[in-house]
Design a protein around this nucleic acid. Structure first.
Lengths: 221, 221
DNA sequence: TTTCAGATTACGGTTTCCCGTAAAGATAAG
DNA sequence: CTTATCTTTACGGGAAACCGTAATCTGAAA
């Protein structure tokens, strides 16, 4: 079993509970953090002390509570952690229900496992830790084909910027000026219209309201 | 302390953990359910057996997983439970961050306490159970002034229907026909326009995209 | 440099939406 | 029944968005 693991989870309840699970599984050193920044610091220190963590077990979303944080979510933490310690094994434990989002974690951040908070999460978590220890990946069935089912769209920062502006109430005709200030490439109203049209078409949508709703649901904006 | 409590929480981890907490606090009979429908059944049975539960401790959001449920969320469960057993004490344990939503729970469903899943939830949960046992309410500081801060809007089912249609891509000019079918009162296009205008104005919005984003954020739709 | 494909922009016609005003209908009090 | 008030509907002008087409720009290959 793993020698040492770091739990990063802002819910005191979950955090405590995971600590217990890991200890039951035989992990010798179980440490924990409530903030991503704290976690990264602990990873650094452990590395410097030549006692690096073997496993990072983290949530994705963290509540803001006044303490200003560099790393605002689990994805940012994982990226920083992998940068610091490429061989670190990562297990994500989250309520994120969108397969596309979870799929990206595997593809882009190369995480080793994902456990969905739910009706079987205790069982899953135990299995996942054992899987990962054996250098296997743990991907729950619901997320197996996270290959973005039928129609999906890769939102670029350009797309996100436009849709965010819409969601803030900006008139389309005022968007070009704003895009220019932020140094985007295609800033003309025509380009904005064309892009929106394109996105709507690939998603099979007819109106921007629909697009905004979709982006909110999928946490694009 | 309470004699018996029912935990309704679909996350196995949280569920288990709460069970432990309640037992530690001295609750004799701790039962649990993963589905709201199951929970209501248990409440009924207990009532019939003359051993009613003293405390209902429930989450708000429940994942769908194929089993068809009558009660799809904690709010519906609480309503049904209070209907069945008006004196039942209710403590909600959820990650819902919107003070307006939580405020409504206190106002409309008359719950006895709310504990927000977060960095202090273990401490809070223990305190809350003790508070409620002493017939006090437990309202976390963040939600004290859930008096819908500055501008807010009470969305009627009529409003929600219209905005949902927009979010689904329905053209405004097609909405009247749909409203008629569902037997609404003001179905004309003019009325729809007027209502949307009104809502936007009270919220200080300029565009429907903004309104849809707001409703998504606040779980109105 | 020339050529060509792709990206970006300009422009005009059509649709949809926005919003004000006035008419029509409903409801309750006198 | 009449009046008054509120709600709902009808209508029209103007703004914004939508969408196709053509012109312009850009960058790389020949």
């Amino acid at each position: 079993m793993f020698q040492s693991a770091l739990i990063v989870e802002d819910h005191q309840s979950s955090n405590q509970w995971i600590q217990q699970i890991l200890k039951d599984l035989g992990v010798m050193t179980v440490k924990y953090a409530y903030y991503c920044d704290d976690a990264l610091l602990m990873l650094k220190r452990a590395l410097e002390d030549n006692t690096p963590f073997d496993l990072l077990l983290t949530d994705l979303s963290f509540d803001e509570d006044g303490r200003v944080q560099q790393l605002r979510n689990g994805a940012m933490l994982i990226e920083a952690a992998k940068n610091l310690q490429p061989d670190l094994r990562v297990l994500v434990f989250s309520a994120e229900p969108d397969p596309a989002v979870v799929g990206n974690l595997f593809k882009q951040l190369d995480i080793n496992g994902y456990v969905h908070k739910g009706r079987r999460d205790m069982t899953d978590l135990k299995t996942a830790v054992e899987y990962i220890h054996q250098h296997k990946k743990f991907v729950p069935a619901e997320f197996q084909q996270a290959v973005r089912s039928k129609n999906a769209h890769d939102f670029s920062t350009y797309d996100i910027q436009i849709i965010s502006l819409l969601a803030q109430g900006t008139l389309q005709k005022n968007i070009p000026a704003i895009l220019q200030q932020s140094g985007a490439k295609a800033t003309s109203l025509s380009s904005v219209e064309k892009r929106l049209n394109q996105i709507r078409e690939t998603l099979g949508f007819t109106k921007n309201e629909q697009l905004v709703a979709y982006c909110k649901d999928h946490k694009v904006i």
